[in-house]
Simulated assay, not measured.
Amino acid sequence: MSKAPTLSMALGTVVLTLGALAMGASVLFVRLADVGPFASAFWRVALALPPLALWAALAEGARAFRPDRLSLLAGAFFAGDLFFWHLAILGTTVANATVLATTSPLWITAFAVLVLRQKVSRAGLIGLALCIAGALALVGRSWQFDPQHLPGDAAGLATAVFFAGYFLAVSRARAARGAAAITFVSTATTALILLMVALVAEPTLWPASTSGAAALVALALVSQVGGQGLMAVGLAAVPPAFGALVFFLEVASAAVLGALLLDEPLTALQAAGGALILAGIVVARPRARKARSAVPPPATGYREGRH
């Protein structure tokens, strides 16, 4: 398989930002759907398969449908992410689930340092701290500790770990495969796993109304095709640890859409949280460094270490 075409760092960051905003809309569509949580998770990926198959066929032809280890692994991780996310929503408060799910950049950074041998600069650490503070501010006072919610809180933490695995698997897969192929194969894997979960856990898979069905189609097209597809494209150019910070915007996107469409007005604290996330991304952004050679190597807040 040939190497995927590369994007510039700036363009890759823009693409990841759009993907994060699209994924943040998923909360809105899940609320509007009239099926159970595991059914909505299944339809999210199942309804995305036809447009993803078309994209894959146009981009890479028949070879796009060949499964590969990293794409299959990414699909399994994303199935775990959606499974535990819905368990967290059912077992704890939405605020707790959101806070714990947004710890995924911590796991991604830890993996990047310990396994991928990347060095995290002081700017990268400051950016991470600002983004975490911003996410906490967006949730606001709704976050709380309750021993009765521990199982749900644990599921929220598992959500973060599984999303980190998905994020890193896609990032590694992009070294050899195109975004369309990875997104299709991983989504098909997720759909198969979640179908088995939904058949066991849900009384019915079918939406009860036209509006509910429309919400599921929007969930598939916007959050899965758009969000996951853009993420796979952007990760070809952006280091995983920095890319993870961009996905803090998913929380900001959900808050803004809630204010605009669900009558959940933003508070001053939440507005400050969004500003902190933006500040963290700016602080940790990849920077070009001076070098003696005529063509200096790229450097980021997350620099490659020795292997």
Rank of each mutant, 00 (worst) to 15 (best):
210 T>S: 10
83 F>V: 05
282 V>G: 06
248 F>P: 04
104 S>T: 14
168 L>K: 00
211 S>M: 06
264 E>Q: 15
221 L>R: 15
174 R>N: 14
138 L>W: 06
194 L>R: 03
246 V>A: 03
114 L>W: 01
200 V>W: 12
284 A>K: 07
167 F>P: 12
149 H>V: 00
144 Q>R: 15
51 P>T: 04
16 L>A: 11
107 W>L: 07
133 A>C: 07
201 A>F: 09
106 L>I: 13
192 L>N: 00
181 A>Y: 08
86 H>K: 03
223 S>L: 12
217 V>E: 00
307 H>D: 11
164 A>I: 01
107 W>N: 11
87 L>G: 01
279 A>I: 07
24 G>W: 08
271 A>Y: 15
63 R>L: 02
235 L>K: 08
106 L>R: 03
99 V>P: 03
65 F>M: 10
71 S>P: 02
227 G>P: 11
268 A>M: 04
65 F>Q: 08
104 S>V: 14
243 G>S: 10
220 A>Q: 08
256 V>Y: 04
161 V>W: 00
38 F>C: 01
183 T>Q: 10
188 A>K: 12
277 I>G: 02
28 L>F: 13
278 L>P: 03
103 T>H: 01
217 V>C: 09
268 A>G: 04
227 G>I: 06
7 L>Q: 08
140 G>H: 09
224 Q>T: 08
48 A>S: 09
284 A>F: 03
74 A>R: 10
183 T>G: 06
75 G>T: 09
186 S>G: 02
277 I>P: 03
143 W>D: 00
32 L>M: 15
191 A>T: 15
171 S>Y: 10
243 G>K: 05
221 L>W: 12
129 A>D: 07
225 V>P: 08
303 R>N: 12
235 L>H: 05
187 T>V: 04
241 A>H: 08
156 G>E: 03
80 G>P: 14
305 G>Q: 09
266 L>R: 12
296 P>Q: 09
164 A>D: 01
17 T>W: 01
41 A>H: 05
279 A>D: 08
266 L>I: 13
296 P>V: 00
265 P>D: 11
54 L>C: 01
